[in-house]
Every structure is written in C-alpha cells, then in structure tokens.
Amino acid sequence: MTAETNFLLAVEGLSVSFDGFKAVDDLSFYVDQNEIRVIIGPNGAGKTTVLDLICGRTRASAGSVTFRGHELTRLPEHEIVRAGVGRKFQTPSIYEDLSVFENLEISFPRGRSVFGALAFRRDYLVRERVQDVAGMVFLDGMLGERAENLSHGQKQWLEIGMLLVQNPLLLMLDEPVAGMSVSERKKTAELLHRIIRDRAVLVIEHDMGFVADIAHRVTVLHQGKVISEGSLAHVKADPKVVEVYLGH
C-alpha cells in the first residue's frame, strides 16, 4: 500500500504497544493540505501517542507515516521538525529561565547546527519575526519578561508562538485550550483561527464547542483505533461514538 502523493500526511497501519498493551492499533488516516483535523476520543484513547508517533518521540512498531511523500518513521526527531512538522505538548513546554524574546528566537529556523548557533546573529529578520509572532500570541508587551513569570495561559500562547516562528507546514496541537480561563479560551480560539490558515493542523481537543468552531473533519479514536471519521455532524450522529465518548 503506498501513499497518495497529494495527501500532506498519510498515516497507514500505524501500531505501537507499551508492555504488550496496544496503545495505537493499526491506525490509518489522511490529512490534506490546509485541512484542519481534530482528533477526539476518551482519555487514554491514544491521541497523544499518535502525535508522538508522527513527530518521532515514540517509535512505531509497525506502519508508516508519510509527509509530503517522505517517510518519517525512521528519521530522527529534529529532521522531522526540519521537514516541516511542528508539535505543541499537552502541558506548556517553554524555557522558564529565558526571556519571552529568547524563547521565541530559539525556534527561528536558522542556525540549527552547533556552529550555526554559535555564529547566529539577532538581525533585523529575526527581530521582526519575533515581534510579529509576539503580537499574534498577545505577548508583545512582554518580550523582556522571564518566561517563568507568565500566567498558565500566557505560557500556552508562548509555546504556540514558538511553533509559529518555526513556520511549520503541519502544526500539531495537543489540547491547546486545556487549563485556560473562559476569556483566555476565547482569545485562543481567535488565535488558532488566524494561525491555521495556509497550513494543515492536527488538533487534539475535548471542548466540543471549540471543535465545532474549527474542525473541517473529525477523527474519533478509541482504544488506539479509528472508530469514526468525517464531519462533526457525521461523527456526532454515529452510534459507536455516542456510546464510547459523547454519551458520557
């Protein structure tokens, strides 16, 4: 079975088990260019693990992940990132000891080798990009602040900002609005609407209002398998989905 080249991302027959427990089981799905795909499913369904498999954090025991026609499953993590896959973690993952500016700057896609980093200059391009992104993620007044002083929501935004500086073709977000206040949630939804243009996005989310707001298509995961896929209306009406997920 080979991937169609017009898919941005093709996941086929992907499996992984932890100590005999199949967390992801013969999973296949396809993401188009510029598509916003939301993955939903009960806790422990294997959603985070799927993202881990795509970005190389966890190695698949079987199956393939093809991104723009290139096989990802055997590449080291940093090569997968350089191929254009960006990943936000479920808990905010930022550098507390560095300033907001420095946090964003590190993601700038230049000077990624050891000596490249040594020779890296904070030039006009870098400053402008960081300024722009900081504006987008509501942190423009805080560039000099140490990241540890940010609120939880601001940290989430900062990490999203770090991904934007990286400018990936596929953006993977793991529960981007979790732990946010109502007003922060609204702002984040707004933010996501803006940043998901011109790229494909894979989002894990529990908040159904939010899902309805952004999803082009929804994939429902249960026990490491896809149990339903399609528009939100379609999966909502699927009795299997109602039984394992929405019914609760």
């Binding site: 993952s93 980093a117 990490e159």
Partner: peptide
C-alpha cells in the same frame, strides 16, 4: 530545562 522542546524545535540535542 526542556530537552524535548529543544529537540522538537529542530535541534540535534
């Protein structure tokens, strides 16, 4: 601080 974050920003840690 965050080895994984650096790795997933495209660096060979």
């Amino acid at each position: 601080e965050r080895e994984d974050r650096v790795r997933f920003s495209g660096y060979d840690v």
